[in-house]
Design a protein around this nucleic acid. Structure first.
Lengths: 339, 339
DNA sequence: TTGAAAGCGCTAACAT
DNA sequence: ATGTTAGCGCTTTCAA
């Protein structure tokens, strides 16, 4: 391994001068810089990150916590896309990304403790937000820089987070259905533990209320992701006396399952029932019909969270931020006007 | 920060003894170990990874290179799943994972050089395999431990790789179509640059040949992923005088697009045309119809590659391995017997 | 079984 | 503008 000393020897300066050249210290003459840089190149020198981190007490690395699990919901294309957003910002800032996947909360917590205590990273991005999350609590207690993609279950003025206005989005997309003449509108959401689900559902309820449409419990369904859940939801809805003519579904992935179930039942979208959903994952474009859905800008969600976190790691006094990424409704073919 | 010295002071031993306790050195008496461990716990001591790496000249970390890009193909659920497989093995081995995403080959190369030269990681997993890849070349020249998920374009006896037998899989799934009475079978694949595409296609061709079915160029289509590509493929195929009755599609994601296009044309699957594909991403279960597809065991692909790589980093003399993960055909509803 | 001392590669006062 | 020195937290000879 080529060290700073080798470079120093070859270029006839001291190690500290080499170090200063690396840091591009302005008090080093251009001449020496040139000389040293040449030596670095000739020798193929690259700084050893561990030595540097040791003294700098900073790693220029961010930990990303991705709740992996056998649950297929986490095979969501959401993740590669948000990683892409994070990665892009980190790359520009010359930070690295440290990815932790863990199945259980306990596993995740011990991972996080390891990387925090061991100075692996300067900050952490949480790609999930659960009610009463131990990881969040730990990070908070440690005063360690972190940011949540989504909404913290508590202390939301103290905790950095990047989110959409899911309430408003839920309301707006429901209103779209109402504007198109629908009144019997059902909501199909994922786990109630997740804030996204709750917020989107509240928006849905608010829209109904404002429009003077009575909401009914039978129209609000929570399902685990995908196939089986989709089946139950559709079966339940279709067993009702007054069947809905519109569906607000809280995730494109769930919509896929629903779409498939509806087809089994010979119910056509949008002719027989209209459907809107959330995320605008690329899949929503290639379903039949293509989905009218809320584009939540996943990439941006990732990019902004990385940006906020880096600021925070650089300046511990940076106040906690809440960043709301604007959404946009993408109108496609899954909604019909009810005449 | 609590250091080894603090622990030493509290427990009344020397720093080196503490270090030995951490390493669980057998020559330290159980008594001292107990004493030291208590002190570590009381103080909340955690080893500083950078200091350790610096002297150990090993990081117990693996770099994973994920070709991110705006190309939606990379929003493939394949990635979260393979990361899950890798993460699980790394976690058990107490390794950490560095994730690098890069848009261009140049960007990826410089990332890889940075983490290799800077001793960020002990080894690298490449989540892609391109023809004449600079990154592969670099790693090979450096003699740096790495493994490719897929097939190396060259030196495949010298390079660790974990792959499926895509040729055989392609042949077998095509044979399934043939067994079901199909003769006019088309192939729709992704980029020809990718070995997966090539191998699966070769398998398809081999099956036709063995069955004495003449292959024709008009039946072999290569498309970029998803929507637009799917459209062209279907339009082309349906403009033919003798339209195919069977389709071998090289990726579930492409199949989704194709399915959607076919439906636009009023062509029913499997009544009018049968379709088989590859990967068995969870989506293939919730399409209408559910897809008959090759389960390539994505999780296993990731887990095994991590395993091989860790072995290699621990023992540089470990010979290069080629690991073939068995596949399995999952029969669902997208194929009809032709009578 | 334990301690003392050196050193991993780098940065950052403090000198000059 | 550059060199000298100390030290980051840890592991590992070498000595006892």
């Amino acid at each position: 391994m080529v060290t700073i000393k080798d470079v120093a020897k070859i270029s006839g300066v001291s190690p500290s001068t080499v170090s200063r050249v690396i840091a591009n210290n302005p008090r080093i003459s251009e001449d020496t810089k040139k000389k040293v840089r040449k030596a670095m190149k000739d020798l193929g020198y690259h700084p050893n990150i561990n030595a540097r981190n040791l003294v700098a007490k900073s790693t220029k690395a961010i930990g990303v916590i991705m709740p992996s699990s056998t649950n297929v919901a986490l095979q969501n294309p959401f993740f590669p896309e948000i990683l892409r957003g994070i990665g892009s910002v980190l790359h520009d800032a010359e930070y690295s990304m440290y990815l932790s996947t863990g199945e259980t909360e306990k596993e995740i917590l011990s991972e996080v403790q390891r990387i925090v205590y061991g100075s692996y990273v300067d900050g952490v991005i949480l790609l999930y937000s659960r009610i009463n999350d131990k990881v969040t609590n730990f990070l908070r207690e440690q005063g360690f820089p972190f940011v949540i993609v989504g909404k913290p279950y508590d202390f939301d003025t103290e905790i950095n987070h990047v989110d959409n206005d899911n309430f408003r989005a839920g309301k707006e997309i429901t209103n779209h259905l109402i504007d198109m003449g629908h009144e019997k509108i059902a909501f199909i959401g994922g786990s109630r533990e997740l804030f996204v689900t709750r917020d989107r559902e509240s928006g849905y309820v608010a829209a109904l209320n404002e429009a003077g449409i009575e909401e009914c419990d039978a129209y609000r369904i929570h399902t685990e992701f995908l196939k089986s859940g989709g089946r139950e939801a559709v079966e339940h809805l279709m067993s009702l006396d007054t069947k809905p003519t519109g569906l607000v579904v809280s995730d494109d992935l769930i919509s896929l399952g629903i779409l498939s179930m509806l087809e089994s039942y010979g119910i056509r979208v949008p002719q027989d029932i209209s459907l809107v959903s959330f995320n605008n994952v690329y899949l929503s474009e290639i379903t039949k019909p293509a989905l009218t859905t809320v584009d939540i800008q996943i990439y941006e969600l990732g990019a902004q969270s990385a940006k906020v976190l880096i600021e925070k790691t650089k300046n511990k006094n940076e106040p906690a931020k809440r960043i709301i990424i604007p959404y946009q409704i993408v109108y496609r073919d899954s909604v019909n006007r009810l005449s």
